[in-house]
Amino acid sequence: MTPARLTRAFCVAVSLSIPFFAAPARAADESGAGNVISGDGEAFSWIILDELKPNLEHKYHRIIKLAGREAMLGAGCGKGIKKARENRPGHETFGFICCPLTKEEIDKEGLTVHPLAQEALMILVNKTNPVDDIPIEKVRAIFRGEIRNWKEVGGEDRPIVVVLRPHCPDRPGHWKTIVPTLEQFRQDRLDVKSEAEVVQRVSDFREGIGNIGATFIFSPDEKVKVVKVSGLAPTAENLKSGKYPFTQDLSIVTHGEISGDLASIIKDVRTSQEFRQVANKYQLVPRN
C-alpha cells in the first residue's frame, strides 16, 4: 500500500468514526451539568418559575433547577445574589430577590437586576381575631408598638403580638414600607427567619400580627387570615393605583456575562403571556 493510499484510508476511518464519538458527547452534554440552569433565592422564585418551567425547558432544551420551594423555609435575597454570582460558562445560574438593590451593591457585585413584578405585603392576623380591617397608620402604630392591644383597633381586649421577618435590613423596600427601620419596630416582638414561620407564629398566637408576600401559598390548616389596610385588599389593582402601601419588588438577578439561553429565558419570563397569567393569579403587577 502506498503512503497516499494509507493517508486516504486513515481520513476515511476518522470521518466514519466522528458520528460515533460526537453523538455520546452531545447526549452527555444534554443530560449533564452543562445543560442545567440553576436558580435560587426568595420564595416567589419557584412559585412563578415553577409554572413557566415546562414551556421554557421545552423551548430551550435546557434543564431548569429551582430551589425556591426550600426558600419558603428561610432562603432569601442573600441566597439569590449568592446563586447569581456562581454563574460561569458551563455553570449557568441566576437568583431571585425581593428588594431593589442599591446602586453601590449592584456596582460592587457586578450584578444585573431584571425587574419582574411588584408584590403586595399582606398583613396577617389569627383567624380567631375579629379584626378584618386596620387603617394604615394603625398598622404602622401596631408594628411600632404604639398600639399594644387589639381593642384599640376594634378587637378583643388582648395584647398584640408582633411577628416580623427582618430580612435584608440594609436594602430598601419590603417591610420598610411598613416601618422604615428595625429600631422603630416594637422590640418585644417575635423575630423569625422565613415567611412560613411568620404564618406559624400568627397561627399559634391569637394575638399575633405579621406580614408576608402575596405569593405565599397557605396550607389548609393554617389559622391565619389577611386583613385589609384602610379598606384596601392587597390586590394588583390597588398596587397599580398606588393605594395599597405595603409592597416589595420582585426581580431576577444575574452576574457578569450570561449565556444567550439564559438571557432569552429571562426575557421570556418577563414578557410571556404565561407569566402574566401567574402574576394575575397572585395579584402581582408585572414591571414590563
Binding site: R148, R158, P159, I160, V161, D188, R189, L190, R201, D204, F205, R206, E207, G208
Partner: peptide, 12 residues
C-alpha cells in the same frame, strides 16, 4: 417570653 411578658393566651 412573649406570652408571659404580654400576658397573652397560653394556647400558643
Amino acid at each position: 417570653f412573649i406570652a408571659s411578658s404580654l400576658d397573652t393566651d397560653a394556647v400558643a
